[in-house]
Every structure is written in structure tokens, then in C-alpha cells.
Design a binder for these strands. Structure first.
Length: 292
DNA sequence: TCCCAGGATCAAG
DNA sequence: CTTGATCATGGG
């Protein structure tokens, strides 16, 4: 496990965790109650432990829930060694990313609605900006929680609350630009029962994609983002500008390939590891300057 | 000032 | 099925 690389990889469909001198902090509702937790890694990449501290109300027993939550969010059961082994041959360009990124895991969200909205916010936006937008949205429209240690946090707003807003109001409060309209529209579809994400993600990949593409503000990349990070569908490979560039360079001799074909290529080549391949290529392209 | 950021959408070719 | 213009917003 490489916790720092994993959390800082910007590979999430939920707002990034806060970083505080060596440890990360996040809030999550577990068993109906907000839990604030901080964690850091001890040991090295191959032999490690995660030290977790939770701030809870009263004497709630959150350990089992928190453990299960972190296991899912950090992909702790993903068999990275199998992944490395499967694509270890030198003729596979992906293998050149393994050394630097060893221990990088794919983070998942745990809230379908939040993942979908954040994926919409991320379109044609920088990670920094869409995260700021999401935080503003939480502060303005999310439930306010005061933890026993005195700290105050805001949860992600519900679909009902965002559905009740005028898009222009949402836009002026959060500077999310033209994305306010689809955010409100999707929220209304969920609030009035026309859209059920839970049943949507139970469909096959192709069917789920088709349904998602009918939603306002949701195109191929956002749909894949939601399926991969929000719904843990590891066969999805979102193609953004970075992936588009690096895949064209590494696999097509820098020849221009369309985005749909890039996505299709990744899915067919890496199958159930397409999401992970995308993760490693993305991180490699962004962090290793000479890669592009 | 222009270009870019984890794009989507619509009109034309 | 591909290309171009347009869409807000802040950073570089």
C-alpha cells in the first residue's frame, strides 16, 4: 500500500481528503451517524499497517463499520500483485509505470449520488477547482455537524435539497458555472424517483452506460468515472485529456486516436483491470513529466 | 490576452 | 462517425 500516492492521485469521485501533517482526514456517515476519521500509514509499501483514529459521538462502536468502509474505499482487497504480474512483460508499456507507482490503489466512493454529482462537476474542470466547488456546495447546502472535539463539518447535500434550488442560485454560490443546471436536473430526477442509481448500477456495463448517457451533463467520460469510482466497476476506463494523450503516445505511436476508440481499446486490452490500467497511466502521465 | 482543466452538446460535413 | 463552436470559471 502507498497511502499518500493513493490519496493524492486525484482519482476519486468524491472530494479529496484533507491532509494534515502526514495524515489524512475524512468524514463519512456510517450506520447513520457521521464519523470523522484520520489515518496514516506505517511500514513500507509491501508490509504496512494503517493507523486510524476516529472521532465519534458517545461510545458508538464504529470499528467494524469503519474497517469495512476503509477496506472498500482504499481497495485493500484488490490483488495488486496479480495486476502487476499479468502485465509484467516488457512489451506492455503499462509495466513501465509499476516501479514508481507500486502500492497505488484505486479509491472508491461510497455514495452513488455524491459520486455522480462530483463526476458532473469535474467535466472540463481542474481537480482543484471542482473540489473547491464541491466543498462550497457542502458548506452552503449540506448538513452541519459539530463533532465532540468541537470541530465543525458539512456533509454532502442531499438530492432533495439540491433539487429545490434555482440553478442560478447554485451557480452564484459555488461558481460551478454551467454545470449547475445538470446538477439540479439530475438531483430532481433522483428526488422525484425517476432515477434510481442503486438499480442502475446493477445492470450490465453496456446497459448502465446507455442509461447514464441519457442524463443531462453526463457524457462518456463522466459515465465511466461514475461507474469506476462510484460503483466500483473496474472494467470502466474514463478517458480524459491525460489518458487520451498518454495512450496515443504509448500504444499508437503518437498517432491521434479518437476518445471513444481510446476507451474501447483500454476495455478490450485490460478487461477487468481497465480501471487500474487507466489509474496507473493517468498518474504516470500527470506526475512523470517526461511521459508526455 | 490566450490557453487550459479528469467534457458535454449540438450542428454540419 | 468525426470535427468545430460554445458553454462558466479560475489558474497559469
Amino acid at each position: 500500500m502507498n497511502l499518500v500516492e493513493t490519496v493524492l492521485s486525484a482519482q476519486t469521485s468524491e472530494p479529496e481528503w484533507f491532509r494534515h501533517n502526514g495524515s489524512f482526514t475524512d468524514i463519512e456517515v456510517l450506520d447513520g451517524t457521521p464519523v470523522k476519521y484520520s489515518l496514516y500509514q506505517v511500514g513500507d509499501t509491501d508490509t504496512f499497517a494503517l493507523k486510524v483514529k476516529a472521532t465519534v459521538f458517545q461510545d458508538e462502536k464504529v470499528t467494524p463499520s469503519l474497517r469495512a468502509h476503509l477496506e472498500q474505499v482504499l481497495g485493500l482487497t484488490d490483488d495488486l500483485e496479480l495486476f502487476y504480474h499479468k502485465f509484467a512483460n516488457q512489451s506492455e508499456p503499462l509495466s513501465s509505470t509499476f516501479q514508481k507507482l507500486r502500492g497505488l490503489r484505486l479509491m472508491r466512493g461510497t455514495n452513488l449520488y455524491e459520486s455522480l454529482i462530483c463526476s458532473i462537476l469535474s467535466q472540463n474542470n481542474s481537480v482543484k477547482l471542482w473540489n473547491r466547488t464541491a466543498r462550497l456546495m457542502m458548506r452552503h447546502y449540506g448538513r452541519r455537524v459539530t463533532f465532540p472535539d468541537g470541530s465543525v463539518s458539512f456533509l454532502f447535500p442531499t438530492a432533495e435539497v439540491l433539487a429545490s434550488l434555482n440553478p442560478r442560485t447554485l451557480r452564484s454560490k459555488t461558481s460551478m458555472g454551467y454545470r449547475a443546471k445538470p446538477v439540479v436536473e439530475v438531483s430532481r430526477m433522483i428526488a422525484n424517483g425517476k432515477l434510481d442509481l442503486k438499480s442502475l448500477v446493477k445492470e450490465t456495463y453496456d446497459k448502465a452506460i446507455d442509461s447514464l448517457l441519457e442524463l443531462p451533463g453526463v457524457g462518456p467520460k463522466v459515465a465511466d468515472c461514475f461507474l469506476l469510482y462510484g460503483a466500483c466497476r473496474l472494467e470502466a476506463a474514463p478517458v480524459d485529456v491525460w489518458i487520451h494523450r498518454i495512450v496515443s503516445r504509448l500504444y499508437f505511436g503518437s498517432k491521434r486516436v479518437s476518445r471513444p476508440k481510446t476507451a474501447e481499446f483500454l476495455r478490450e486490452r485490460f478487461r477487468e483491470w481497465a480501471g487500474y490500467a487507466q489509474l496507473y497511466l493517468f498518474d504516470y502521465a500527470r506526475r512523470v513529466n517526461s511521459a508526455i
